[in-house]
Design a binder for these strands. Structure first.
Lengths: 152, 152
DNA sequence: ATCGATGCAAAGACTTTGCAGCCAG
DNA sequence: CTGGCTGCAAAGTCTTTGCATCGAT
């Protein structure tokens, strides 16, 4: 799924509305997440930005990403490889994890998510309050040079 | 969900059938995973075992867990916290992730998994071969001292 | 002006690697 | 016996922390 980059103003408002200061670093990091839809780690975000922003430090990228997660502007992706990766999409959705390339592809399907949530609510799990669900679909991309397409 | 510890002989056969040598270390590590149903990391497994097995080394625990994953005897759990955790249950199932305690509770529901798999097959995702699915349910345990119960 | 945010570097946590010696098959 | 496995320690990767300085409000 391709992400639509919001206008700069809208990003500023998103940050400001949480009480955080609107800094240049937070803006470029948030933009980088919209530009790179492969759920980058802190290191990948830093490498992507450091040429254009030589004064940006890796530590700031780490801190900023965690801060944005705390404020629910972005979220962490569940991963099996022990690396923290981030996602600008905070609504419930699924991920296709390619075992060979470690690409993670968004797979948003509101009908599926609604179906699962409904199922879990009917199930009545005692002593557990559900906040969010993420379906991780593990597999393999036979033709890495081609796109992965999802039909409705 | 409580795990049933298989007989020692059955564990030995499980290891041998993959072509791996049946060593004492592999046996105790596999047993530890059955005893600790909270999806422990390598470090946690090591701490759990090192008193009883003073000669066991942390590096061996790391290597063994990865080896067992390669042979599909165990699997990795999808986690948002950047730590590799392991699960003896290799069949498709879900996990309840508690945000406060970082406990991960197994939630096996074959009907749910079948429903999701069927849905995804009907969906026809082009250029992606599904190998496995894991549903991660994120939430909170209001009473940590009580059990989390799931009604059928 | 104020207080939170950044940059830097050092420290810490987590994991892998290389190799000599050991042991299961 | 012999090749795979282990223990050890060192190195590597990933992430956090402390603090002086900077800059958004």
């Amino acid at each position: 799924m391709k992400k639509d980059m919001p206008a700069l103003q809208s990003l500023k408002e998103k940050i400001a509305s949480t009480g955080l200061k609107v800094t240049q670093q937070r803006l470029v990091i948030l933009q980088a997440l919209y530009e790179n839809d492969d759920h980058p780690s802190a290191e990948v975000v830093y490498n992507h930005l450091s040429n254009e922003n030589p004064s940006l430090s890796l530590g700031t990228v780490y801190k900023t990403l965690e801060t944005l997660v705390e404020k629910s502007i972005i979220r962490k992706v569940y991963c099996a490889d022990g690396i923290k990766r981030y996602d600008v999409h905070i609504e419930p959705h699924s991920h296709l994890h390619c075992q060979s390339s470690h690409r993670i592809i968004d797979f948003s399907d509101p009908a599926l998510e609604a179906m699962i949530l409904q199922y879990l609510q009917d199930k009545k799990i005692e002593n557990f309050e559900i906040q969010d669900i993420q379906l991780q679909i593990q597999g393999h991309i036979p033709n890495p040079e081609k796109r992965v397409r999802i039909y409705a």
